[in-house]
Design a protein around this nucleic acid. Structure first.
Length: 798
RNA sequence: GCGAGAGUGGCGGAAUGGUAGACGCGAAGGUCUCAAACACCUUUGGUAGUAAUACUGUGUGAGUUCAAGUCUCAUCUCUCGCACCA
């Protein structure tokens, strides 16, 4: 019937030749910046999931262009990272070559879909011209005291003798050899993201992120307000400071627990009578992975410190101190006050080790479980008689503050960002270590610090980055004193390159700076950013942190990088499970493109269901969409030479529906509306050119190739990509007549076609005279009549 | 455990508090054909009825309302995110 392959190639060529989708940095039009999360070009090629989000945002971008905006809709590649490194090691090639191949495949696949990206702005995070600026920005962090080195645990496989990423050590076992992963301490570069916890939280108010995404961010930042309280250690000058959100329960504190890594253990060494036992416990928990330690339902373990006691500052009682690995060193102060009566974990611990449980909040049954609700305070000295939590907390903190035993404190779960990876395939951290001068930044004139072109970059067996083994590369001179020095061999994490890429798109070829002031000011914020839910926490936080920092040092105009952040749902296999090779339910988008065309695939993926929800693949559904496009194509055979709209009301209604639905990412109902329009057109003997033009214009953002071709074949006007988005007249969306619904006591008893201009009285009169309605109301008392103009009449009888 | 979201035909899914099931798929019957495929037409939540129509129906149970898939409360189930965070 028509050769979709030929048509799609033709228009893709046309757009490319005409540079239709190239954004201009000096346009009089209003700007609009549409961004999709750039892909990691894996060896497997494009996934149908990519097609869903790319098409959705493509439709938005295309519509915005027709509406007269200067649209920036770019794409690039997030190509550093482990899979490429491992693939390259396995095949004995350089990762950059592997990446080059993969990008080629991805690019071709994406181009065949007819996504309106501005390919002139394409780059990869692995391009030296790009990572030069990633390194440059790292040095800005360093310059402003936000990058520092600290000892941190890494996941370590004692068998393979290499450091592992969290992904490689999931479940607490090494992905390669299956042995259990331990923690090994190593000096690492860190970024002080914790300093930005509050701005990252309040900044959300300046965005229109989807609510679920805001929530994910808020949870991850994990703000909690409370106090740091000082507990004296009996018979010493030492103190233990704990963080708590519940100072009101202080009288219920019957013991303390400190983390095995807590430094006070060393300080109190001579006082602790069972120090050997403590050391054993420390070793034991060191060998546990984070995973094991955090495993729920696990029985609590701990060791009591013999010979030392703390003093409860509320009632001066001596209480036991325990070491337990359920207390984490990296949150709060690494020590807690335990209130077994009102905390599950403390309750469990106290029960196991026979520690007293003192109830201080009334309302539960503490013989059975910890009580966590509100209630009047009891057994609580100065707090007795207070009924609310807020008041009790305040009273207690004020009481302790006067004695210098407490300070109000806000804590965040958000930690500093571990910015080092012991890997080859990442941006080298541009620092040099000199024995004389310490850490010295690489001068910006010497950026980028390039990755060496070597053949061997297997991980070393001492936990260092593979770069450490490349002596030629490591040995350098100190930029400060000129003496011999060594390069930092750690590389940046995968998240680095994606933490500012949207800025580079604004001015991708600039070799003076990461993006010119003019470009940054012109494009400003990303108006609409789309990505997966899996990146709604970490990537989004890193990107916002990075941008807020650049803003604070005056390099970018906006504090928040993204106005809207939306998330698409996943596309599952036909069996409702996640697509995977092993399950054999993978659909390759390019098979579909070859078989039924890009337009059919695009239309189907937009029609598949609610954009935000996951959806299962259905080949029959796909065929239905292909059928729809075929029917649109056949409309060409029924054009008459009349002018105007044959179905004016419906046309205006459809423009309205499609316009609003694309704005709200309700593509499925937009397409449904177009199907309705088509169904009605088909019922006519023939339609006008305008009728056809309006349908294909509205369909164009979703199925751009076939609509352009129909437009050209029938001389309907200039190419659709150069035309304008239709507007609707609200008054024309209302028909002259409508079907009035008549209910009796809320149940539909009749329908009648009436004029839209009918008055309430007229509507009621008609309603009462419907035969079936009469059957219900005759002889009954009419209590009242509710009449909704242009809709319905409800007669309430007794 | 905490947080977010969702439960509607055989399936994917529509419904500013106002006709539940739009649109699509599938299925059944028909037209075309030697036949099939394609295409086209008709029907399609369930029960009863030739039909008009009636009853019933949005996870479950209450409630608010003239009117509830939609609002409120309770409850169950599922999905996702976070999780020994003090």
């Amino acid at each position: 019937m028509y050769d979709f392959k030929k048509i799609e190639n033709k228009w893709q060529q046309f757009w490319e030749n005409q540079k239709t989708f190239n954004a201009s940095n000096d346009s009089k039009k209003p700007k609009y910046y549409v961004l999709i999360e750039f892909p990691y070009p894996s060896g497997v090629g494009l996934h149908v999931g990519h097609v869903r989000s790319y098409t959705a945002l493509d439709a938005l971008a295309r519509k915005r262009r027709l509406e007269g905006y200067n649209v920036l809709f770019p794409i690039g590649w997030d190509a550093f990272g482990l899979p490429a490194e491992q693939y390259a090691i396995k095949n004995k090639i350089h990762p950059k070559d592997a990446v080059k191949e993969n990008i080629k495949t991805f690019k071709k696949q994406i181009q065949e879909l007819g996504i309106s990206f501005d390919w002139d702005r394409e780059f990869s995070t692995t391009d030296p011209e790009y990572y030069k600026w990633t390194q440059w920005q790292f040095l800005k962090f360093y310059e402003h005291g936000l990058a520092y080195k600290a000892k941190k645990d890494i996941n370590w496989c004692p068998n393979c003798k290499i450091g592992l990423s969290n992904e490689e050590s999931s479940g607490g076992v090494c992905e390669r050899c299956g042995s259990s992963v331990v923690q090994k301490e190593k000096e690492q570069w860190m970024l002080k993201m914790s300093e930005y916890a509050e701005p990252l939280l309040t900044g959300l108010d300046d965005t229109d992120f989807q609510e679920k995404i805001k929530t994910a961010q808020v949870n991850w930042i994990g703000k909690s307000v409370g106090a740091n309280i000082k507990f004296k250690i009996a018979d010493t000058d030492e103190n233990l400071i704990v963080f708590t959100t519940r100072p009101d329960t202080l009288y219920g504190v019957t013991f303390m627990v400190i983390s095995p890594e807590h430094p006070i253990l060393e300080t109190l060494k001579s006082k602790i009578k069972n120090y050997d036992e403590v050391v054993d416990y420390q070793k034991e928990s060191k060998n546990k992975t984070d995973f094991e330690r955090a495993e729920l339902n696990k029985e609590k373990t701990g060791v009591k410190l013999n010979g030392v006691y703390a003093i409860n500052p509320a009632n001066q009682q001596q209480i036991e101190i325990w070491v337990g690995d359920y207390v984490l060193m990296n949150y709060g102060t690494g020590a807690i006050m335990s209130v077994p009566a009102h905390d599950d974990r403390d309750y469990e611990f106290a029960k196991k080790f026979n520690i007293p449980i003192v109830e201080v909040i009334q309302g539960g049954d503490i013989t059975k479980e910890a009580y966590k609700g509100e209630g009047p305070l009891i057994n609580s000295g100065i707090l007795n008689g207070i009924n609310t939590k807020v008041e009790a907390i305040d009273t207690m903190v004020e009481y302790l503050e006067k004695q210098n035993l407490a300070v109000r404190q806000t804590n965040y779960k958000l930690q500093d960002w571990v910015f080092s990876r012991q890997r080859f395939w990442g941006e080298p951290i541009p620092m040099i270590h000199c024995d004389e001068c310490g850490w010295v930044p690489v001068p910006t004139t010497e950026l980028p610090v390039l990755l060496p072109d070597v053949v061997n970059y297997e991980p070393t067996d001492n936990g260092e980055s593979p770069l450490a083994a490349i002596e030629d590369w490591v040995a350098t001179t100190c930029p400060k004193c000129g003496g011999s020095a060594r390069r930092e061999t750690d590389t940046m994490p995968n998240w680095a390159g994606s933490s500012w890429y949207w800025l580079r798109y604004m001015d991708p070829h600039n070799n003076q700076t990461f993006a010119s002031k003019e470009a940054l000011n012109y494009w400003g914020q990303v108006d609409w950013y789309n990505g997966g839910m899996e990146h709604a926490t970490r990537h989004l936080l890193y990107a916002r942190f990075w941008n807020q920092f650049l803003h604070n040092i005056g390099l970018v105009p906006n504090s928040e990088p993204f106005k809207i952040r939306a998330a698409h749902g996943m596309i599952l296999g036909a069996n409702g499970e996640k697509m995977s090779k092993s399950k054999g339910n993978v659909i390759n988008p390019n098979d579909i493109v070859n078989e039924l065309g890009a337009d059919a695939l695009r239309t189907y993926e937009m029609f598949i269901g609610d954009y935000e929800k996951e959806a299962a693949w259905s080949t029959n559904g796909l065929k239905g969409c292909k059928r729809f496009l075929d029917r649109v194509w056949r409309l060409q055979e029924h054009i008459n030479d009349k002018s105007g709209y044959t179905l004016e009301g419906l046309v205006h209604k459809t423009i309205k529906k499609v316009t609003n639905d694309i704005e709200n990412m309700k593509y499925n109902t937009a397409i449904a509306a177009l199907m309705i329009l088509l169904n009605e057109y088909e019922k006519q003997d023939s339609i006008t050119k305008q009728d056809l033009l309006i349908l294909i214009t509205l369909l164009n953002p979703i199925a751009p190739h076939i609509t352009e071709e129909i437009n050209a074949l029938n001389n309907l006007g200039k190419p659709l990509c150069d035309s304008t988005w239709p507007t609707y007249d609200d008054s024309k969306t209302v028909a002259d007549e409508y079907e009035m619904i008549v209910q009796v006591n809320g149940k539909v008893r009749g329908k009648e076609i009436v004029s839209t201009s009918s008055s309430k009285e007229k509507m009621e009169e008609i309603a009462m005279n419907i035969e079936n309605v009469k059957r219900y109301i005759d002889g009954k008392e009419i209590v009242k009549i509710i009449t909704i103009p242009k809709k319905m009449v409800n007669i309430v009888i007794k």
